[in-house]
Design a protein around this nucleic acid. Structure first.
Length: 630
RNA sequence: GGGGACGUAGCUCAGUUGGUCAGAGCGCUGCCCUGUCACGGCAGAGGUCGCGGGUUCGAGCCCCGUCGUCCCCGCCA
C-alpha cells in the first residue's frame, strides 16, 4: 500500500489526554494502531501514543478516503488522525478508558508508516517469553507497563538530582575509561590502540575519583553513575548498572544517613509513596541472627531461636549439632503442604553450608510432640503458617570453620543462619501469592501512607504492605580466611575502622568494627558506604594489618596514595543502586523490567546481539590476536 | 564452575501408561457487518514438538548429549 507523508501536519494533542472538556475541538493526533474494530461502514481505531489511548472513528459517509485508509491499516501501523473531538452517546461511553467519554470523529487518516506483524502485541499484557520480549524490545517497551516503568525511573532520578542539588551536592562526571578500582569484582577491560598491550578498565564504581574530589575541595559530590562489573548476573544484578554515588567531606555517618534519607524519601514521594525518616538501624550480627541475611526483608516474620524447644536428647536423636543455632522460619498463610510439595521445595535449601532442616512437623510431632508444639508456640505460628526448623548438621562438620572469636558469630553459626535466611526468602518468593506481603499495588502505596511505613522492624503482618528501609551497621572490619589463616578486609581497603577500635587493629583484628553501613530494603541491598580513611598513618596500618607491602600498595593504588598526602579531609559517602530503587517502586520482579536494554543471565543483549567477534582489522589496530582455548 | 525449572503454531498453553496426539484459545489472512471498545459472523492459512543421537515394531512422551531462557549457589564487599 502507499504511505502518506507527514507534510505540514502538526500534532495538537496526545491521545491519552483528551477529555469531555475537549469536545468540539479540532485535533490532530499521531500514534500507533493499538486495535482496529471494523464494522463495515464504520471502523474504530484505538490510537496509542505515550500518553495513552483514544478511539478514532472512521465513518464511510463522513470520510470515504479516511475509511479506505482505515480498512488498510493493521496493528502497529503509525498513523495521523485529523478530526474533531466529540462526546460519545451515553450508551457508548467506555468507563474502563480514561478517554472513554469522547472519541475523535476523523475527517482524514494519514498512514505514516506500515509495520511488520510483531510476534506479540503491545496492546496485551506482558507475554511470558522474555526471550522474545528482549529481542523485540522496541515493541515490548510500547506496552503501558514499560512506559510507566521508565516514566517512573525518570521521575525518581529527577527527584534524587533535585534533592541532592538542594542539599549542596555538585554533580561531577568521572571517567568511564579508567584504571582498575579496588572493588573486588572482575573488571571489564578495553584495549588501548595507542598503547600496545595496555588496557583501560571500566569503573566498578567511581570510588577513587570521588574520594579525590573530596581532596579537591568540592565538599559534596554526587553522580548518577554507570558502573560495570564482569560477574554472573542475577535478577537484581546486571553487568552494567546505575548508582546514585555520593561523597561528602567532614561527615560522621549520621550525616550520610541524613542525606540519603532525604533524597530517598524525595524519590519515593515522586512515586507517590511516603517513606518516613529516620530509617531504623540494626547491627550486622543482629540482622544475621534475626533474618539470616545482611539485607533483611522485614515484610515477613524473621527467624526465631527455637533451641529451647529441644532437649539435648532430642537434638542427639535428630542429629542436630547442639552447639549451633537452632532457628525456625515461618511463612504465613501457606497452608498444609503435601509431602510432594515439601519435597519440591528442598532444592531451594542450600545444604552445602553444613545446615539441615526439618519441615515435616507431623513426623516431628510423633517423636517429639512437646518440641513440635513449642516451636509453633515460639514462632507464634497460626494454623495456616508453614514452619521449618533449620539447624547445624554434624555430618557436614568442617573442623577448621569452628574457629570462633570472642563476640563474633562464627562461620558455622553464620552458615546456619544464612541457610535459614535464604530458605526463608526463597519460600517467601514461591508462596508470595498466599501470604500476599510482597504485593505492590495501589493498595500497597495507600497502605504505606496509612501505616506510616512501619518503622517497627518486627515485621508485623499489618505493617508488611510497605517499603521497609533499614540501615545495617557495625560490620566486622576483617574476615578470617580459613584457607590462608589470614585476616582479609571485608570491604575495600579505604574503609575506616571505628576510631575507638583503632588501637586493636593488630592485637585483636577480630574485634575491629568498620565504620561502614548498608542500606537494605525489602530484601534488597540498596546501597553501601563508609567513612573512609583519610590519614596516611592509618592507611599504612591497615595495609600492614592486611599484609599488603608498601610496594604492592603503591602498584595498586599509587596515584591515590599520593593524593592522600596532599591534604585530605575526613570524608565518607555511599552509593545506592538506582535500578534497584526503581525496581522496588515499580514492583518489578527483576531489574530487566526497569532497564531499557538489559542483558540476559548469560550476559547477552538479545536485541543488539552483543557481544560479537570483531574484524581482523580491528584486532590488528588494537595489537591483539584471539587465541581461544578449545 | 554447580543445582533447579522451562522449551509443542506468531503468543499462551493442553497433550493420560510409548500406539488417530499434531490440538485449543488468542493472534493472523480473506469475505460480511454503522456503535464497537478483548466487537461479532463465516471461511482459511500456519508445526523440523529447541537441536543431535539412542532405545523401540512405533517417540512430543523414555534415555544420553547439546543449545537457549529464567531462578539460585559460587562470584558480586
Amino acid at each position: 500500500m502507499s504511505l502518506d507523508f507527514l507534510g505540514n501536519l502538526e500534532r495538537t494533542h496526545l491521545c491519552g489526554t483528551l477529555r469531555a472538556a475537549d469536545a468540539g475541538k479540532p485535533v490532530v493526533v499521531m500514534g500507533w494502531v493499538n486495535r482496529r474494530r471494523d464494522h463495515g461502514n464504520l471502523i474504530f481505531l484505538d490510537l496509542r501514543d505515550r500518553s495513552g489511548i483514544c478511539q478514532v472513528v472512521l465513518d464511510r459517509e463522513l470520510t470515504p478516503e479516511g475509511h479506505v485508509r482505515g480498512e488498510q491499516v493493521r496493528p502497529e501501523y503509525v498513523v495521523a488522525a485529523v478530526g474533531k473531538v466529540r462526546l460519545r452517546a451515553a450508551d457508548a461511553i467506555n468507563p474502563k478508558m480514561e478517554t472513554g467519554e469522547i472519541e475523535i470523529e476523523a475527517t482524514e487518516l494519514r498512514v505514516l508508516n506500515d509495520a511488520r506483524l510483531a510476534p506479540f502485541s503491545p496492546a496485551e499484557d506482558a507475554i511470558q517469553n522474555e526471550e522474545v520480549r528482549l529481542k523485540y524490545r522496541y515493541v515490548d517497551m510500547r506496552r503501558a507497563e514499560m512506559q510507566r516503568n521508565f516514566r517512573l525511573r525518570h521521575e525518581i532520578t529527577r527527584a534524587i538530582r533535585e534533592s541532592l542539588s538542594k542539599q549542596g551536592f555538585l554533580e561531577i562526571e568521572t571517567p568511564i575509561l579508567t584504571k582498575s578500582t579496588p572493588e573486588g569484582a572482575r573488571d571489564f577491560l578495553v584495549p588501548s590502540r595507542v598503547h600496545a598491550g595496555e588496557f583501560y578498565a571500566l569503573p566498578q564504581s567511581p570510588q577513587i575519583f570521588k574520594q579525590i574530589l573530596m581532596i579537591s575541595g568540592f565538599d559534596r559530590y554526587f553522580q548518577i553513575a554507570r558502573c560495570f562489573r564482569d560477574e554472573d548476573q542475577r535478577a537484581d544484578r546486571q553487568l552494567e548498572f546505575t548508582q546514585v554515588d555520593l561523597e561528602m567531606s567532614f561527615p560522621r555517618r549520621e550525616h550520610v544517613f541524613g542525606v540519603v534519607e532525604k533524597f530517598l524519601s524525595a524519590a519515593f514521594a515522586a512515586a507517590g509513596v511516603a517513606l518516613p525518616t529516620p530509617f531504623p538501624r540494626m547491627t550486622y550480627d543482629e540482622s544475621m541472627r534475626r533474618f539470616g541475611s545482611d539485607k533483611p526483608d522485614l515484610r515477613l516474620p524473621g527467624l526465631t531461636d527455637v533451641r529451647p524447644a529441644f532437649t539435648n536428647d532430642a537434638l542427639a536423636t535428630l542429629q542436630i549439632d547442639p552447639a549451633l543455632p537452632v532457628v525456625a522460619l515461618r511463612i504465613p498463610g501457606v497452608g498444609e503442604l503435601s509431602r510432594k510439595e515439601r519435597e519440591d521445595n528442598h532444592p531451594l535449601f542450600d545444604q552445602k553450608k553444613g545446615a539441615k532442616f526439618i519441615d515435616d512437623f507431623k513426623r516431628l510431632a510423633k517423636s517429639f510432640p512437646e518440641s513440635a508444639a513449642k516451636v509453633r508456640e515460639l514462632t507464634s505460628a497460626a494454623e495456616a503458617d508453614f514452619v521449618i526448623v533449620v539447624a547445624g548438621d554434624p555430618a557436614h562438620h568442617i573442623k577448621a570453620s569452628d574457629t570462633k572469636f570472642e563476640g563474633r558469630l562464627s562461620e558455622r553459626e553464620i552458615n546456619v543462619y544464612a541457610a535459614a535466611g535464604n530458605f526463608r526468602t526463597e519460600l517467601a518468593k514461591k508462596y508470595a501469592d498466599r501470604h500476599g506481603a510482597f504485593r505492590v499495588t495501589e493498595e500497597t502505596v495507600e497502605a504505606a501512607h496509612a501505616h506510616g511505613g512501619a518503622n517497627a522492624i518486627d515485621g508485623a503482618i499489618d505493617g508488611s504492605r510497605a517499603f521497609h528501609p533499614i540501615w545495617i551497621v557495625d560490620f566486622p572490619m576483617f574476615e578470617y580466611e580459613l584457607a590462608s589463616a589470614k585476616w582479609v578486609p571485608a570491604h575495600h581497603p579505604f574503609t575506616a575502622p571505628y576510631e575507638a577500635d583503632m588501637a586493636n587493629l593488630v592485637s585483636d583484628p577480630a574485634s575491629v568494627r568498620a565504620d561502614c553501613y548498608d542500606l537494605a530494603m525489602n530484601g534488597l541491598e540498596l546501597g553501601s558506604g563508609s567513612i573512609r580513611i583519610h590519614r596516611k598513618d592509618v592507611q599504612q596500618q591497615i595495609f600492614a594489618s592486611l599484609g599488603i607491602s608498601d610496594d604492592e600498595a603503591r602498584k595498586r593504588f599509587g596515584f591515590f596514595l599520593d593524593a592522600l598526602e596532599y591534604g585530605t579531609p575526613p570524608h565518607g559517602g555511599i552509593a545506592l543502586g538506582l535500578d534497584r530503587i526503581v525496581m522496588l517502586l515499580a514492583g518489578a520482579p527483576n531489574m530487566r523490567e526497569v532497564v531499557a536494554f538489559p542483558k540476559t543471565a548469560k550476559a547477552i543483549d538479545l536485541m543488539a546481539e552483543a557481544p560479537t567477534t570483531v574484524t581482523e582489522q580491528q584486532l590488528r589496530e588494537l595489537h591483539l590476536r584471539v587465541a581461544l582455548k578449545s
